[in-house]
Design a protein around this nucleic acid. Structure first.
Lengths: 222, 222
DNA sequence: GTCTATACCTGGATAGAC
DNA sequence: GTCTATCCAGGTATAGAC
């Protein structure tokens, strides 16, 4: 998106970011050392501090370079929907696709690193690191607000609090589905032979089913 | 469950386990040092190695002591359902409640530490640590197999692969809902004033909606 | 059995040569 | 701008005193 006109720095910087992205996904932030990063990137140990200032700022930049684009793409998709719709309400399934489908399409990009990043992102939603959490919250704030507002308009009969909960649940199902797809086969090892492109339609169907489910204010089933 | 007849050791051991559970949830495994654990437990630095052998074995024990009971409770609930049902198929909602509802009830136990543990567990589903992952897979294997089998019987018209996917999605929604409830307020800070007991019915409704959603083999909505 | 003291290693970060 | 050498804080684990 923004090319800061520097071209000599670009290469080393990018190599560090790419290496860090993969390693953070595999070993977590605390589990990844500067030495692991610099040796994978084939750069000197001091390069990270030179280019980014610290490990924390490197983490931040790893997220920023992709998350900015992802949320821009989400908002652009929502802009299109809202322009098309005019006055009539947008179908919730379209809104869900603009948010979650956009992320899933990024996750399907294995070669460009989108897949790695989405795995990392999914993993990071439950990451307790204060620094990372605050940064993510800031990066997401605008995007989430606009999508929630769109869902409120699309589902005026549903209580807003309820929509908020369900958005939360959808985030969880997606994060886990992506991060779990190749990070953990807890349930069984049975996903190995699956085509990863099957994930998106299946997950979208699940999310919409959950979103539309009756509220069930009654007592528990037992 | 198993009282190894030692009573002098019990106290120190438990204090270490309780301290580790909280700290692992707050800072992750790599982010929690032995010094943090032992100082919180008010025991000596050497006590962890004395009682557990290593940090990794401590992690394992933190999970084992609660997970064994959780999965026993789940299987017991399933046993009851199967005994009651006899030949007729069990309603999927009952099966889902036996698995996820049991976990949610454990998560509602704030004082006994169940809540802390479920947060930790939810966080750990996306934890890439090889050691932990393999341990969890072993602990879960039997329980998950039996619940999947029950769902296959309850939903004979749905492809098994599809059920497997949806089970996976349900796990994700639950983990994130629990771990996110007080570990990260990414979406907004708006859950703070919520009663945590509201989570269970809302989540169960969402899960069942997703489980029952039509398969949507057609193209994407766009 | 439990704790004190410590060994030994790896972490992030930096100063200064090139 | 990049690399080498190094600092020192903090990591796990242990040997030996109590």
């Amino acid at each position: 998106m923004n090319e800061p006109a520097g071209k000599t720095t670009g290469d080393t910087r990018s190599r560090i970011l790419d290496a860090a992205e993969v390693l953070f996904m595999d070993h977590g932030f605390d589990g990844t050392s500067m030495r692991m990063i610099t040796s994978r990137a084939a750069v000197n140990l001091a390069a990270v501090n030179y280019h980014f200032g610290s490990k924390e700022l490197l983490i931040q930049e790893v997220f920023r370079r992709r998350l900015t684009d992802l949320n821009k793409a989400r908002l652009a998709a929502l802009d299109v929907l809202e322009a098309e719709a005019g006055e009539v309400p947008i179908k919730p399934s379209r809104i869900v696709d603009a948010f979650f489908g956009t992320a899933l399409r990024m996750a399907a990009d294995v070669e460009g690193g989108g897949h790695t990043f989405m795995c990392l992102l999914g993993r990071t939603y439950t990451e307790p690191n204060e620094f990372v959490r605050q940064f993510l919250a800031e990066e997401y704030a605008e995007c989430v607000e606009r999508f929630l507002a769109a869902l409120y308009r699309a589902l005026p009969e549903v209580e807003r609090k309820e929509i908020l909960w369900r958005f939360h649940f959808m985030m969880g199902a997606m994060s886990y589905a992506i991060a779990g797809t190749d990070a953990l086969q807890l349930v069984t090892g049975k996903f190995d032979d699956e085509d990863p492109s099957q994930l998106a339609p299946r997950l979208m169907s699940f999310l919409l089913g959950g979103l539309r489910s009756p509220l069930a204010e009654a007592g528990p089933p037992k």
